[in-house]
């Protein structure tokens, strides 16, 4: 993520979260935060505890985010990929962008239009042993027919969507209840994972067995294995046990053409 991308990202984030942008130059952004965003990104829990405990008037911070790494003349916080404040802003984005319900906006010259309900969920799948890999899956299910689609997010990202349906638009109520849809997608992601090649897990298992043999050799002649042996054995298990973690990034109900 280069500095212009970060600048753009920040601008968009603050606009969307209702913070007032006081200054926006090529090198930096100065923003008046709302109380909600201050709490999420400024990392000052004691201040907020104090305000709430004393029932005082809060004064959310004004911050200057410097996105040009060469800019040293003004005061503010340098924001680059990996910097702690950007990390917290990413985290806030996650919290504020988890659930949507949207209707596709359609040119009213097309007359009466019927929109179909879809449920979409974006999954992050993490494969962990002594190393990790992650994959993103975007799945959608048609809540009338039960048909599923992969790469769903890419197919809707470009569409015009609105939080309210337009007047001339008629949207069908789901036949499959959204919560039931969630269950079906969860089952689908499990099935997808089950079909993958899990060579990585076999390899981790082999590394584990090899290290276990080395350890056993060290304590070979010792009848009563000492605590260190048990400890190291546990460490090996923690290091090499293959795990697959499925997280939901976000999801929502989409009424689409």
């Amino acid at each position: 993520m280069h500095s212009q991308q970060i600048h753009q990202y920040l601008r968009q984030f603050f606009l969307e979260s209702n913070c007032a942008i006081l200054q926006d130059t090529i090198d930096y952004l100065t923003v008046q935060l709302t109380g909600e965003i201050d709490k999420k990104i400024m990392n000052r829990p004691f201040y907020w505890q104090y305000i709430e405990a004393t029932n005082s008037e809060p004064a959310p911070a004004t911050i200057t985010c410097i996105t040009n790494p060469a800019e040293n003349s003004i005061g503010g916080v340098k924001v680059h990929f990996g910097s702690p404040i950007l990390h917290r802003i990413f985290h806030a984005t996650r919290e504020l962008g988890s659930y949507v319900q949207l209707y596709e906006t359609v040119d009213d010259s097309l007359g009466q239009i019927i929109l179909t309900p879809w449920l979409a969920i974006n999954y992050k799948v993490s494969y962990c042993c002594d190393c990790t890999k992650e994959t993103l899956y975007s799945l959608g299910i048609n809540l009338l027919t039960g048909v599923m689609k992969e790469n769903f997010q890419d197919s809707i990202a470009i569409r015009d969507l609105d939080i309210e349906p337009a007047d001339h638009i008629f949207h069908v109520q789901p036949i499959i209840k959204p919560l039931r849809g969630v269950e079906r997608l969860n089952a689908a992601i499990q099935a997808i994972i089950a079909q993958e090649d899990h060579k990585w897990a076999d390899e981790a298992w082999r590394r584990w067995q090899r290290d276990q043999r080395v350890l056993d050799y060290f304590y070979e002649d010792i009848e009563e294995k000492p605590e260190h042996y048990v400890l190291e054995k546990k460490a090996l298990a923690e290091r090499y046990t293959a795990k697959i973690k499925v997280d939901i990034v976000n999801g929502g109900v989409f009424y689409l053409l």
């Binding site: 990413f90 962008g97 949507v100 993103l136 990202a157 939080i163």
Partner: peptide, 24 residues
């Protein structure tokens, strides 16, 4: 309340960007 479509998309994009694409 439901969240904003822009933040929803931003969330997806940064998750994608921070993804660890391979083991090594």
């Amino acid at each position: 309340k439901w969240d904003s479509w822009t933040l929803y998309k931003m969330n997806y994009e940064i998750t994608k960007m921070q993804l660890i694409p391979d083991f090594t």
